[in-house]
Amino acid sequence: METLEPILAAHPFFTGMSPELLKLLVGCASNVKFDAGDFISREGQDASEFFIIRQGKVALELFSPTHGAITVETLEDGEVMGWSWLLPPYRSHFDARAMELTRTIRFDGKCLRSKLEADHHLGYEMLKRFVKIIAERLSATRLQLLDIYGTRV
């Protein structure tokens, strides 16, 4: 039977990860597809999972009663969505909405946390990857906050 291992190995998030570690992760992974308009997660709800995007586009949104849904970031093929599953109280901070047909690999956060606790080598490999993404997005967010295209800077 075909497993998700080759798909994970080909995704940029897992570049350089050993086949042994990937094998451990596959048990927490499943193939999930979302149609355009589907909400993948909602702000404030349990963040019990994260996704790697194989194909498609996802909008991270915040809803304001006066402005409606505001898209703060879009994610596409090759990117990762969600890190709230790593940190208590495991709640989503944004709405995530599929902008088009989106194919993902979903990871069960609870399953993954127990594996990372049990195998710190795996835990460190995963954290290194997440820290890189968090640092990149923090840097991008700071630029967004500066409003560089406005007249203030």
Binding site: A59, G68, A69, I70, T71, V72, E73, T74, A140
Partner: peptide
């Protein structure tokens, strides 16, 4: 806003 279908970032 959500009616924009392009990239945000």
């Amino acid at each position: 806003s959500s009616d924009w279908h392009g990239n945000v970032g």
